[in-house]
């Protein structure tokens, strides 16, 4: 298991090289001139040439790439052309905000998705099953932005239960240290802040978690249905176990591998794909950070932002692979 883990981590290297090459190439293929972004439309050709020279943009493509990779290896993600702040520093609070939102959304998605799927499978072809699957179908079909707007309209505007946007009430004057407001407020023992942070988190997390919830519910249902038919489930029942243990111990553990795969992929998608939700709820996340950078042609930010997200995506899927082996002793990664 340890050998496999190490081997898999080394296998990430070519993947990461490929990813950096692709993001680098794509960003360079985008029409537009970063020098003009910096100097403005009215800059003289000399000024532009100077800026290009300073940025190394007059060098050949491969040299630029190697410079970029060299920087990456030193933990340098580059500097924003607009704010002149190192990206590795600037991206952190955005990343934390997105991670907090995605984790909350995933928690909702997994909890409701898995239980909905189990109930549907356990009472297959009953009204419970049908209504569960209707919910799941609606979940995958409703556009995130529409759901977000409806939530805001109903729960924030009409009912006034939740705040409509942002991460925290600025009047509280709270400044976290890690960027994860839930954890920060929990550790500082400030429950007023914690409550406020949670209230801000719920609406966007529900909006963002709906699609993965629906996908997980459908996956869980089909997977549980298959496992419920297996012989060992009959054995478990023959032992006199209650349905709860039959389903949540014997069935769920066997059914969770495909569910886990889907959940891992969805988690990766949430990290980068939260732009719409982040925009609607004014959530200062990494999706919006990159989106704004695209509007401003802030090439280093686009490039490094995408690379960071892609890296996280790959790492999450590695974790999922490692969890497989932990769940299923038959998966012996050492001997593949």
């Amino acid at each position: 298991m340890l050998a496999y883990t190490i081997r898999r981590i080394f296998m990430l290297i070519p993947v990461l090289i490929g990813m950096s090459l692709v993001t680098f190439a794509i960003v360079h293929a985008i029409p537009g001139d970063p020098a003009k972004t910096i100097a403005g439309e009215k800059a003289s050709p000399q000024e532009l040439a100077e800026i290009r020279h300073n940025l190394g943009l007059d060098q050949p493509f491969y040299k630029q790439y190697f410079l970029y990779v060299n920087d990456l290896l030193h933990g340098n993600l580059g500097t924003s052309l607009i704010t002149h702040v190192p990206i590795s520093e600037e991206i952190q609070p955005y990343l934390a905000a997105t991670a907090e939102l995605s984790l909350a959304a995933m928690a909702i998605a997994i909890f409701f998705g898995v239980n909905l799927g189990i109930l549907s499978a356990w009472r297959q072809n009953s009204w419970l099953d049908y209504s569960g699957m209707v919910v799941a179908l609606l979940g995958v079909s409703i556009p995130v932005f529409w759901l977000g707007l409806m939530e805001q309209w109903l729960f924030a505007q009409k009912l006034g239960i939740f705040p409509s946007s942002g991460r925290i009430d600025p009047r509280l004057g709270f400044e976290g240290f890690s960027g994860f407001y839930v954890l920060d407020s929990l550790f500082s023992g400030d429950f007023t802040v914690l409550g406020d942070v949670m209230m801000h988190l719920i609406l966007p997390a529900v909006a963002l978690g709906t699609i993965p919830m629906a996908i997980i519910a459908r996956m869980t249902r089909s997977s549980v249905l298959e496992v419920l038919r297996s012989d060992f489930v009959r054995t478990a029942r023959a032992k006199g176990l209650s349905e709860f243990w039959v389903v949540y111990k014997h069935t769920l553990k066997n059914a969770c591998i495909p569910v886990l795969t889907v959940a891992g992929l969805q988690m990766g998608l949430l990290l980068g794909g939260a732009v719409l939700t982040e925009t609607i709820f004014s959530w200062p996340g990494v999706g919006r950070y990159i989106y704004d950078a695209i509007g401003q042609r802030d090439y280093p930010v686009i490039q490094s932002g995408i690379l960071v997200l892609a890296t996280i995506f790959v790492v999450i899927n590695l974790l999922v692979d490692l969890i497989y082996a932990w769940i299923d002793p038959r998966i012996q990664y050492g001997k593949d």
């Binding site: 012989d231 060992f232 054995t235 553990k253 066997n254 769940i327 299923d328 002793p329 038959r330």
Partner: peptide, 12 residues
């Protein structure tokens, strides 16, 4: 049961 190969839960 008939099938000892599948009558035990593989994950426990």
């Amino acid at each position: 049961f008939q099938e000892p190969m599948t009558s035990l839960n593989p994950l426990f």
